[in-house]
Write a protein that binds this DNA or RNA. Structure first.
Lengths: 218, 218
DNA sequence: TTTAAATGCGAGCAACTGCTCGCGTTTTCA
DNA sequence: TGAAAACGCGAGCAGTTGCTCGCATTTAAA
């Protein structure tokens, strides 16, 4: 029926019978993903070694490959986990009511949790920012990009219903990239995080205000 | 006295005697850098193979390593070359007079050549965007970042002399990152390049206008 | 012309890395 | 309880990659 961890279908091939994971096995997978997050955050995707990930999790390479087809699959699973956590943790930031807030309030509600998430999960940022894996891991990155894009697009639709969809999509994409452009500053910030955050909001506010207005739509 | 291609000094060690390059040798170096630019653009830094670079230049690995200490040095030389070209080609975009233009004109003068340069030199973008090499190649990336930062900072100083230096530096850095954030869209754009460019300018205009005003300082 | 330095080659080394395979242990389930 | 399945190990394979080394050729200087 289905395959765990994004199993892929090969032409003319029935999907491999899904392996029945025991509680112990699922725990190991989680541990391996935790370890992978650490190593990816430290060395990036290409710099990370599957042996190192296994060792970090206190497991052997053989064990790792019992749960993940290959290195790429590890990153994919990790990204899937992040996307899931992002949805559940910050779906509230994009609740319908948010679209009715004044622009500055809205930005607070959207930006603050996102920054907190990125800073709490450096591997998420490392994988997203790494262009090496674009061809192979595009499939893993895309959902994460989608999450942000779609929700911002939805907010824009609520705020500026008259904006043509193409223009709205462009605006949403630009907004996402503006945010991501400042992420390096946000990630490196220490004492000056509040200032950098304020500047990020200022930039987004300035860009979005002409398109959707300062206040809520009447 | 000095060492070619960013020779480094090791503690308690006299710099290696600089090698006297012949015209033939300098030409080979240029060819190798051209080849490196192609391969870096196609595969990124880690994905690029020194053997592939040598082959692309019609040279052997041994020849390559006669001119470059190691793979990292290739990227460093290439970045140095780009920084030099950037300075000479677009120094005009940052001429003193530019600071006296209205903001939108100023952005045209600064942004258009930068976009043209980035699109003409994909390896430049590939190396700048690649986070893998951050630790090792930070030294090679920094000058490139500096070029943009310092000049924008200079413009800001001319336009808003009353802005505290710390605040001005932050604004300049944010502006650079906003630009870089939209670079992926700019690089991938085909038909819609004009729209993306316009959006980039819109964003920068909106962010900078409050700080330095629409028109030239009186 | 002589000679030392610069250029050039390419087989191949040493190290690394993703991943496998054989085998032993633990858990599930009938 | 017994077998099948899941879990676990780690030595090590196969492939890759940055880089070297011995040697040949070309060029610059004396």
């Amino acid at each position: 029926m289905f395959i765990e961890t994004e199993g892929r279908f090969v032409t003319g091939d029935t999907p491999k019978s899904p392996r029945k994971r025991q509680a112990r096995g699922r725990k190991r997978m989680a541990e391996l993903l935790d370890a992978a997050a650490e190593v990816f955050a430290e060395r990036g995707f290409t710099g990370a070694t599957t042996n190192a990930i296994a060792a970090r999790a206190g497991a052997s390479p053989g064990t790792l490959y019992q749960f993940f087809e290959n290195k790429e699959a590890i990153a994919e699973s990790l990204m899937a986990r992040y996307v899931e956590r992002l949805r559940e943790a910050h779906g509230a930031a994009f609740a319908p009511e948010v679209a009715k807030l004044p622009l500055d309030r809205m930005l607070d509600r959207v930006i603050d949790p996102l920054i907190a998430f990125d800073r709490a999960h450096p591997a998420f940022y490392a994988l997203l920012a790494d262009p090496d894996l674009s061809p192979e891991l595009a499939g893993a990155k895309r959902p994460a990009q989608r999450v942000m894009f779609e929700r911002i697009d939805a907010i824009l639709e609520a705020r500026a219903p008259d904006l043509p969809p193409a223009k709205r999509a462009l605006t949403a994409q630009v907004a996402v990239h503006l945010f991501r452009g400042l992420l390096p500053l946000v990630m490196d910030a220490t004492d000056d995080l509040p200032e950098v955050t304020a500047e990020l909001k200022r930039a987004l506010h300035a860009y979005l205000a002409p398109a959707i207005g300062e206040g809520p739509p009447e």
